[in-house]
Design a protein around this nucleic acid. Sequence first.
DNA 1: CATGCGTGGGC
DNA 2: TGCCCAAGCAT
Length: 299
Amino acid sequence: MPSTSLPASAVSLPLADWYRGAARDLPWRRPRFHEDFGAWGTLVSEFMLQQTPVNRVIPHLEAWLDRWPTPAAMAAASTSDVLQQWANLGYPRRALWLHRAAVEITERHGGVVPKDVDALLKLSGIGDYTARAVAVFAYGDRHPVVDTNTRRVMARAILGQAQPGPPSRRDLELMDSLLPADVAESAVFNAAAMELGATVCTARSPRCEICPLVGVCAWVAAGRPDTGDTRRRQATFEGSDRQARGAALRILRAAAPDAVLIDSVLAEWPDPLQRDRAIDSLIADGLAEADGEMLSLPR
DNA sequence: CATGCGTGGGC
DNA sequence: TGCCCAAGCAT
């Protein structure tokens, strides 16, 4: 399946060497972080990192864990407080799911973040990436961790493609085939592949001059061809329902814990139908609550 | 399998 | 400026 005749170690060894010298000093990579927050800290960080850049996550993560240092502490919080604390991290449904996961961990796992991938996958808001990220980065187990960075690195270095295709189960199989047999080495490999994709093998301007894999990269060997791009493009944000939802929720966060008159929310929005649709969908999603003429974050 | 879902920074 | 992108998930 991999279009390479090189052994997997030809990729993993230089990557591990590079990572030891080049890894960024991020909060969740400091030993103290795990002493204080354990797997819960990892889980919270992974939720926040789902589609939100590292630099915007860091201050929010520290504030979050100061306020709710355990799953049980967060499980006891109100939805309103959770959504306010989530602030402007984006995709606020993640805050709802994280809250639900905290309740599930408290009720079903005695307040301890599960270590088993299948148990993690059953928690709200946790999918293939987050489940394995927690198992690997919090507990040190051996699993393929595949995110957008990893998929891009594999697409280029192994498959010789400029960009990865749509996410697929095959990504997990390919990453698994590259994983070192040693447990500790496999964890480093997962982290290093992500780090390389985030800082060197980037989507727009890959810095092949400094890449530790330049000697084995299938894409470089082929002359960095433009192999096409089948990635899904984001829908235009300007004028979208998402924009309206975001604007409405921003108003509710600012007013919380108070409610506001529904009629006052987005009263000047250019498209009244879209404005109504946004508010109705926020309520349906559990991100807002209507009480008579008033609208607020859910209690 | 395709789509909807926030927010802000970089080029 | 406008577009692209960012440690995905649920449906």
